[in-house]
Structures are given as C-alpha cells and as structure tokens.
Amino acid sequence: MEPLKIELPKSITDAITVAVFDSFKQLKKSVNSDFPLYLSKKQTCEYLNISNKTLDEWIETGDIPYKHIGKTYRFNRNDLDKFMATK
C-alpha cells in the first residue's frame, strides 16, 4: 500500500516555514545571549557541553579555534559554532 500524500496550499507551507525559521532565530538569540562573544575555557566547556579534558585535548591537537594571550585562552563563540558544525 502506498502512503497517502497530501499537498498543502503554498500559503500554509510558507507560513509553516516562516514560523519554523522564526523559532530557530529566537532560540539562537536566547542561547547566545547567555554567553559573551569571547569565552574563557570554563565558559567554552559550558557552551559546548564538554569536559575540560576534552577541551584540552582539542587545544593540544589544534582542532579547536582559539587565541592564546599570555596564560589566557579565549574562544570566539562564532568560530566555535562553525567548528561544531563540522564535528
């Protein structure tokens, strides 16, 4: 038996598409607003939901984008989003 196919009017599919994209935009704003643009190691672990050990391994292998300024590590939130999209 073939599955039943129902085609919705374009106005409805367009409205659904807009609603979905708006929801994602709002979610992204709420998540990103909790974190500054440049993160410390601790903030990065929280943002990515990873352990400090995992972050240290990624730093050692050069996998994760970061800046090392003196004894301080800084991670750009936008670069982390791009990095995680490739993981």
Rank of each mutant, 00 (worst) to 15 (best):
K67V: 07
G70M: 09
T86G: 04
C45H: 04
F21D: 11
R77C: 00
T17D: 10
L8M: 14
E57R: 10
S11N: 13
Q26S: 12
S51V: 12
M1W: 03
K87L: 12
T44F: 00
K87R: 15
E57Q: 12
D81V: 11
D79C: 09
P3M: 13
D22F: 02
L48F: 01
P65L: 04
I16L: 05
D79W: 09
S33N: 11
L39R: 00
Y73F: 15
I50C: 05
S33E: 15
D79M: 10
P9D: 08
S33L: 03
E7G: 04
Q26C: 06
S11R: 11
N52Q: 13
K5E: 12
M84N: 08
K42T: 14
S30W: 02
F21W: 06
Y47T: 03
I12D: 10
Y47C: 01
P65Q: 06
I50D: 02
K53H: 14
N32Y: 04
K29M: 05
K29P: 00
K25G: 03
S40M: 07
W58I: 06
S33F: 02
K41H: 04
Y66K: 03
R74Q: 13
T61N: 15
I64Q: 01
N52Y: 14
E46G: 03
I64R: 01
L80A: 04
T54H: 06
R77K: 15
Y47P: 01
A15K: 10
V18M: 06
T17M: 04
T54F: 03
K71C: 08
L80C: 03
Y47K: 01
T61H: 12
T17R: 08
T13G: 07
W58S: 07
C45T: 06
K53N: 14
K42Q: 12
S11I: 13
L80S: 02
S30N: 11
F35L: 00
H68W: 02
S30Q: 09
L8V: 10
M1T: 08
L4H: 10
A15Y: 04
T61A: 12
L39Y: 00
D14R: 03
I59W: 10
K67H: 09
F83D: 06
K87T: 14
V31I: 15
N76H: 09
L8A: 11
D56P: 03
D63K: 14
L48E: 01
S30L: 06
K67M: 07
V18N: 05
L80F: 03
I12R: 12
L27E: 10
K41S: 14
I6W: 09
M84E: 10
L48Y: 02
E57D: 14
Y38E: 15
D22P: 00
N78P: 00
A15G: 05
T13M: 07
K42C: 00
K82D: 02
